[in-house]
Design a protein around this nucleic acid. Structure first.
Lengths: 313, 313
DNA sequence: AGTATTGCTGACTTTGTAGTCATGTTTAAA
DNA sequence: TTTAAACATGACTACAAAGTCAGCAATACT
């Protein structure tokens, strides 16, 4: 049984590991940054695997390597096998299994990080590892199995269904203004007057993402010259500025939970009403099945994340 | 990634192989018959795996070893992983993949062996390996993945469904008598008279299976003293004797295709009418899915086997 | 063109594991 | 109780693989 795997040399767990590391990193140098010794080792291990399988696993793509179609398949096989073995061992040693959760930068900040412990508990006491990725590579990573869970807009999933995702929240955006920046006795409804915005000191993100651009576009369409006084690398900093009373800002509903309504007015930001999308928890059904995570558990996890978002008023 | 698999020594493909061989054979000595050297090697490999996983994979059961529950799980994992790697390699090297087909002794003789080439073609040019096993271990082997396809009575499958089996044929039994053993101008319908049977020289199987016993019981109930002149180790030999005109015999419908109706009369053998069972092709849905065998292909395979059986008249 | 980065190759050393052997221990059966 | 079978263990050898190093070739960036 399985003679053909052993009658020939060139197959070993270490070689598979070297190849997988290259596959994950996208290049040999990326797999072992600053370690030329290991780079040369991986290079040879890949060649030996290619000889063993008589397959071109990699192709040169300019200066770096890329996976050939066969390489993509083998990498998926190896990843799954290693993970299965690791899970088996984790159960035996009574150590929590490792799950990877992936989302966009701001989503991780707003929704995930503050609730990691709850999430880990719902998933059965697992160890969670978070990663930042944009929508498209995120969905791809879930598909190929290198990521267990993703938080992503539903429309980024090619075939959204009850089997591979669960809604978390409907995104919406709000204009948030600290009271102290407004004339005394200003009521929240007066904030709808765009004329008032002109003089407000704004803070905005500078992450180059879609959201930031959409806000600027919307402001321009309203005829408001939007020149934020602060451009922050992280939206967490923006919220912090708003909370301290120094700035106004456009914030997503998932960020409102940290603001004191007695000190900060917030009203829906109409121009971005159509920009709202459904965020879903996304997973690979085969992988979750293999790792013994039930659909119910996944829906519970989505619930935990949903509970983190205050209801829109 | 997967650091825990490599930060500790004790895991290797060879060790997994040694363990799997023991698991398949049910004991170390069985895994390496007559090779005490390899036996001691396997013994140590198993211990090293047990240390690596901190798990009891085996338990002493009297003189031999048996798999502990954890060992059963790990063996299934390893078998699947090795098979996946072997399949991957087979596709690359353009060598047919190996599939294992399992059935009872007589079923293998009657239905499978003569049609192996057709079957291999329908399954996509695979290499077929046949194995003899009785119903219960067969179903178990399909479940754990050590066998791809089984031919078995439907009632031996715990949860028969469209997803894990497909009917092949309804078994029935026939009394077959060469013309030359009968008085001239005897018509087939006269064969219903059990008095005629008394003087016929019968051939019968001697495989100790259910079928043989059932025939003898039925004869006894009919008041016929059934003392076959020939007791053959294989039912193929029985059919051969009938074909040559030397003997009468009770044969299953799946054996009739080899008989010349002009030289041999055959009529349904009523006493065993209730003994007929549905034979099905049985498989493990997860395994067939992993090995890229579609349900359609499996149904085609069942068709091929069904076509081997002549219609009952 | 010059330079830095990336990957490939050949010649090593070191390490882990497979493989071998002799011998001990447990267990089942004669 | 004796015997034989099945498995375990310790001490080795042989070998394949991992790991190391120096140098080369191809590519991209400036």
């Amino acid at each position: 049984m399985f003679k053909s795997l052993f009658s020939q040399k060139g197959l070993s767990l270490e070689r598979m590991r070297g190849f997988l590391e290259m596959a994950e990193a996208g290049s040999i140098a990326g797999a072992a940054p600053g370690d030329v010794v290991r780079q040369s080792l991986i290079s040879r291990q890949i060649r030996e695997l290619e000889e063993f399988f008589s397959a071109e696993l990699t192709i040169r793509k300019g200066k770096t390597l890329a996976l050939a179609p066969e390489g993509v398949r083998l990498a998926a096989i190896i990843r799954e096998q290693f993970q299965t073995l690791e899970d088996f061992r984790s159960v035996q040693v009574n150590v929590p299994r490792v799950f990877t959760l992936c989302a966009g930068a701001s989503t991780l900040e707003w929704m995930v990080t503050p609730f990691l412990t709850d999430l880990a508990r719902v998933l059965g006491g697992v160890q969670l590892r978070t990663e930042m990725r944009r929508s498209r590579p995120l969905v791809e990573a879930v598909r190929e199995g290198s990521v267990d869970l993703g938080i992503v807009r539903r429309d980024a999933i090619p075939d959204p269904s009850r089997k591979n995702c669960e809604p978390i929240v409907e995104l919406s955006f709000h204009l948030c203004v600290p009271k102290q920046l407004l004339p005394r006795k200003t009521t929240p409804d007066r904030l709808s007057d765009t004329a008032m915005w002109q003089d407000l000191p704004f803070a905005a993100g500078r992450d180059g993402g879609q959201l930031d651009g959409a806000i600027r576009d919307a402001m321009e369409q309203l005829g408001v010259s939007f020149r934020p006084r602060f451009e922050c690398g992280s939206m967490l900093q923006v919220r912090s500025l708003v909370q301290q009373g120094g700035c106004a800002a456009i914030l997503p509903n998932v960020a409102l939970s940290g603001l004191d309504p007695n000190r900060v007015f917030s009203i829906p930001f109409r121009p971005l009403a159509g920009y709202g999308r459904t965020l879903v928890l996304h997973w690979n059904p085969r992988q979750m099945n293999r790792r013994d995570v039930s659909l119910d558990t996944l829906r519970d996890a989505a619930q935990v994340l949903a509970a983190a978002v205050p209801e829109a008023k």
